[in-house]
């Protein structure tokens, strides 16, 4: 929120969505003005972000989580276990007759740091890092695809206006009316069955593609709506008019004039989208329509955990706590990114 006095100092001429954008940077007084002279909007954003301690810490946490996921094979190699070997079944003395770990706390010891999976007796630590790798890469791909589609549909609708805008708007409405969880659960097996006959085992990469496709279909609408609104107001601004009068082709206007002004909402919104996709993919696995078979998966650890929690709650704690840390850090990071881009919006 901007207090009237702040707005006066900043001299923000046009209140509008782009008041928050990049080309009308607020200046908090004379000292800051000289300080910020000759810096690009990106540098300004970076300067503000660095000052935000919560943001920097959460960025570190998020980076570490991504690094852990990306380095899963390295971690597994250093640690000397892999997520597929059924240690509890090959080695006697690790699991008891009911296939639960013999040692307390889910079989945690100096060898199996996070314990063993009840039943199959696989190592929990490597399962978790490999599972994070699966879930995070799925979520990243879904986010990128959704953002791209949202940009295409939002910018096309907002910039073209008229009939295309009307139809794209109705399409967005339609997609928003789908009960999305139900849609995911119902269509993931259907699309899978279309591609592979039910007798055959579905290859892992294909299953991942199906998941990505289904989540992508219903993932772009919020951002598309937001961008359409932004483009509608930007379209009337003087610099776009000027570009039009100067005879700039539409494609160039969109690329050079519109898109740079949409970076803020896109970045902010995608930091909110990604954790949602992580939990969404995990939810699907929990309901039994996500990744299958021997592919380690973050969400399926919860499904296993829900089966065994009465006897062995420890198994669920590690994936659960890891997910809470990831989501909290990512949400805080999202808030900080928003504040850094858009210092006028108070929390």
């Amino acid at each position: 929120m901007t207090s009237p006095s702040q707005a006066a100092i900043a001299g923000a001429e046009t209140p509008g969505p782009d008041g928050a954008g990049l080309n009308s940077e607020p200046v908090d007084g004379d000292k800051a003005a000289t300080d910020q002279l000759g810096r690009s909007p990106g540098q300004l954003m970076w300067m503000r972000f660095k000052r935000d301690r919560t943001g920097v810490i959460s960025a570190f946490v998020v980076l570490i989580m991504f690094a852990i996921a990306a380095l899963a094979p390295v971690i597994s190699w250093l640690y000397g276990k892999d997520p597929w070997t059924r240690y509890g079944q090959i080695r006697p003395g690790l699991l008891n007759d009911n296939a639960y770990p013999v040692k307390p706390n889910g079989g945690m010891d100096s060898e199996f740091w996070f314990g063993l999976e009840p039943g199959l007796g696989r190592d929990v630590l490597t399962q978790l890092v490999y599972g994070m790798r699966t879930s995070l890469s799925l979520a990243v791909v879904i986010t990128i695809l959704s953002v791209v589609l949202a940009i295409v549909i939002g910018v096309a609708g907002g910039y073209l206006g008229g009939k295309p805008d009307y139809f794209l708007g109705r399409l967005t409405d339609l997609m928003m009316s789908f009960p999305n969880q139900l849609f995911f659960v119902a269509f993931t097996p259907v699309i899978g069955a279309l591609l592979v006959s039910p007798q055959d085992e579905m290859p892992t990469w294909l299953r991942a593609c199906v998941l990505i496709f289904v989540m992508w279909l219903l993932g772009w609408m919020t951002l598309a709506r937001l961008l359409r609104g932004q483009v509608l107001t930007l379209r009337e601004r003087e610099f776009i008019e000027a570009a039009k009068v100067a005879g700039t082709p539409p494609w160039r206007i969109i690329r050079k004039e519109l898109l740079p002004n949409l970076v803020t909402p896109i970045l902010v919104q995608s930091t909110y989208m990604l954790p949602n996709f992580v939990t969404g993919v995990a939810g699907l696995s929990f309901l039994g329509v996500g990744m299958q078979g021997s592919t380690p998966d973050w969400g399926r650890m919860f499904a296993t955990g829900a089966e065994v929690y009465q006897s062995d709650i420890t198994y669920m704690i590690f994936p659960g706590v890891a997910m809470v840390i990831f989501i909290v850090a990512f949400n805080l990071l999202g808030d900080s990114v928003r504040d850094a881009f858009d210092p006028k919006s108070g929390r």
């Binding site: 954790p275 995990a282 919860f302 659960g320 909290v328 949400n331």
Partner: peptide
């Protein structure tokens, strides 16, 4: 913020 980052499939079994 912390509560909203919890997932039902994690908290549910814990509470139970």
């Amino acid at each position: 913020l912390v509560l909203s980052s919890m997932q039902i499939y994690f908290v549910g079994p814990l509470v139970m």
